[in-house]
């Protein structure tokens, strides 16, 4: 077992459990502390990256969709690269939404529960229990909206997780023991197939980041260094877009072949 991806409906609980699991296992903790490094690598303001992790695109907030997707792509690329190393607990970086089909990554959802969640939030934020309850409910809605917009994935859908723990029934210390105990499951051991899935995801994310810097409407898949990019363009722009994508994607380390599939952009075609 080498990767735990821990998420919760309450940020404070998620941080706390992830930290304790990392300590108990002697694993490295990967959390939002890496945003400063990501920002430096891609020459982006750290605050903008933090903002992108919380909000959805909006003209009012001066966060256009393309820019927002680029910020998320930068974070995703960096996280996936770091997950290639063994023995990591990942939290707060939305990895549960984009680390897909990697059999040695265990996705854990910790439900704060009514009692435990409200109490923790009230204590950490210095607010009343009633206000904490309202805050938690609105936070849950906001995160559901964010996950659907960002990755078309409802993070409150519990069937997507490998292990779900309700803190109303299981004490936090027991939850940590349960999670660390799950590290023994053979099903979640690293294998050649799962490492390859992860490296393909990491390469696709790097290419996605390189492309989203200057264009929108991109989907990237990678396999063994071969990359397929799906995009849209008008008939007039098609050739130039393919050339640009091939040049940008081909410049990413680890890419040996690029194939571009272009669908007609009907809106631009009629204009």
């Amino acid at each position: 077992m080498s990767i735990f991806i821990i998420s919760s409906d309450a940020r404070e609980i998620e941080e706390n459990i992830a930290k304790k699991v990392a300590e108990a296992m002697g694993y490295k903790l990967l959390n939002r502390d890496i945003l400063a490094t990501v920002a430096a690598n891609y020459q982006i303001d750290t605050d903008k990256l933090s903002e992108a992790m919380k909000t959805t695109p909006s003209l009012f907030k001066k966060l256009p969709s393309r820019q927002w997707r680029y910020y998320l792509a930068c974070i995703e690329a960096d996280v996936l690269e770091k997950l290639m190393a063994d023995n990591i607990v990942c939290q707060g970086l939305a990895a549960h939404l984009y680390v897909t089909d990697v059999s040695h990554a265990m996705k854990v959802r910790v439900l704060s529960g009514n009692r435990q969640g409200i109490q923790t939030v009230a204590e950490k934020r210095g607010i009343s229990l009633q206000r904490a309850e309202k805050w938690l409910a609105s936070e849950l809605l906001q995160r559901k909206k964010w996950s659907l917009t960002a990755y078309n994935y409802d993070e409150t859908d519990l069937t997507r997780y490998d292990l779900v723990i309700n803190l109303d029934q299981i004490d936090p210390a027991e939850a940590v023991k349960t999670i660390t105990g799950a590290a023994e499951y053979r099903k979640f051991q690293v294998m050649t197939y799962s490492m390859k899935c992860l490296s393909d995801l990491a390469l696709a994310a790097k290419v996605n980041g390189a492309l989203l810097k200057s264009m929108a409407d991109i989907r990237v898949q990678a396999r063994d260094g071969s990359v397929v990019v799906l995009t849209r363009a008008s008939s007039r722009q098609k050739r130039k877009k393919i050339e640009t994508i091939k040049a940008l994607a081909g410049g990413v380390e680890g890419v040996s072949y690029v194939e571009v599939h272009v669908k007609k952009n009907i809106l631009k075609e009629t204009n």
Binding site: S103, Y185, K187, F188, Q189, Y193, S194, K196
Partner: peptide
């Protein structure tokens, strides 16, 4: 026909490694 469920099933049953 590698899929995450199949990979986990094989691993759980004691396979040494699994490759697509």
């Amino acid at each position: 026909y590698a899929k995450v469920d199949l990979a986990r099933e094989a691993m759980g049953k004691g396979v040494f490694d699994f490759i697509a």
